[in-house]
C-alpha cells in the first residue's frame, strides 16, 4: 500500500498529460470534424476531392507514424521553420488524425438527414448557415453520438502513443516505475486509472444520449 502511495503522484502527473491531450483533441477535432464533414457532403468537387484525400491519408497511415512525422519529420522538411514542441506536435497530430475520423462519422450523419429538411428550411428562407446550425446539426449530433463516443474512448487509449516523441503520459509513468522497481503493480494501477477515465466518459456519453432522447 505504501508503495502505491509512493508511485501514485508520478502516475497522476502522467494521467494529467493524458487528460490534457485528450481534452484538447476532443475540443479541436469534433468541431473541425463537423466542418470537414460538411465539406465532404458539399457539391463543390475540388473541395470534396481535397478533403477525401486528407481523410484517406489520415485513416490510411498509422497514428504512430503521423506523430513521428510531425515531431521529427516536419523540422527536416521546413529546415527548422516547422519545428514544434513535443506537446504541440502531439496535439497537432492527434487533432489532424481524429478530425478525419470524426469527419467521416459526421458525413454519415449528414447524409442520413432527409433532403426535405433542407428544402423546408429553404422555403422558410433560412440561409445555409442558419439551416446547418438550427436544423441539421442538432439532428446529426443525435445520430452520430454513439459513434463519436466510440472514437472518444479510443482517443483516451491512443493518447498513450505520445511516448514515442518522449512525452511523459500515464503509460510512460507506469512503464518507468515498473522497470525501475521490477514489479507489475504500477502497470496494474495504470490499467485501473485508464478504466476509471473511460468509465467516467461512458457515463457522460450515456447522459448525453439521454439528453437527446427528448425527441425521435
Amino acid at each position: 500500500m505504501s508503495y502505491i502511495l509512493e508511485i501514485l503522484p508520478s502516475l497522476l502527473e502522467g494521467a494529467q498529460l493524458t487528460l490534457k491531450i485528450f481534452l484538447w483533441t476532443v475540443v479541436g477535432s469534433i468541431p473541425l470534424g463537423l466542418i470537414v464533414g460538411l465539406g465532404l457532403t458539399s457539391h463543390f468537387v475540388p473541395l470534396k476531392a481535397i478533403l477525401k484525400f486528407y481523410v484517406w491519408l489520415m485513416r490510411g497511415t498509422p497514428l504512430l507514424l503521423q506523430l513521428i512525422f510531425v515531431f521529427y519529420g516536419l523540422p527536416l522538411i521546413g529546415s527548422g521553420a516547422l519545428t514544434l514542441q513535443r506537446y504541440d506536435a502531439a496535439l497537432f497530430a492527434f487533432i489532424l488524425n481524429y478530425t478525419a475520423y470524426f469527419a467521416e462519422i459526421f458525413r454519415g450523419g449528414l447524409q442520413s438527414i432527409d433532403h426535405g429538411q433542407y428544402e423546408s428550411a429553404k422555403v422558410l428562407r433560412l440561409s445555409y448557415l442558419q439551416t446547418v446550425r438550427k436544423v441539421i446539426t442538432p439532428q446529426v449530433l443525435k445520430i452520430v453520438l454513439p459513434s463519436i463516443g466510440n472514437e472518444v474512448i479510443n482517443l483516451v487509449k491512443d493518447s498513450s502513443l505520445v511516448y514515442v516523441i518522449g512525452l511523459g503520459d500515464l503509460l510512460r509513468a507506469g512503464n518507468v516505475a515498473t522497470s525501475r522497481d521490477v514489479t507489475l503493480v504500477p502497470l496494474i494501477l495504470v490499467g485501473v486509472i485508464y478504466l476509471l477515465m473511460t468509465a467516467v466518459l461512458t457515463f457522460i456519453l450515456r447522459k448525453l444520449e439521454q439528453h437527446y432522447s427528448y425527441w425521435k
Partner: peptide, 28 residues
C-alpha cells in the same frame, strides 16, 4: 415568400411545435 406545405410535412423533429413555427420568423 412562397410558402410550402410538403407532402411529408417536413417538420423539424428536434423542435417543439411552437419552436417549429417561430424559428423562421425569429431568424429570418
Amino acid at each position: 415568400v412562397i410558402g410550402v406545405v410538403f407532402q411529408e410535412y417536413q417538420l423539424f423533429p428536434h423542435l417543439k411545435v411552437l419552436e417549429n413555427i417561430t424559428l423562421a420568423p425569429i431568424m429570418v
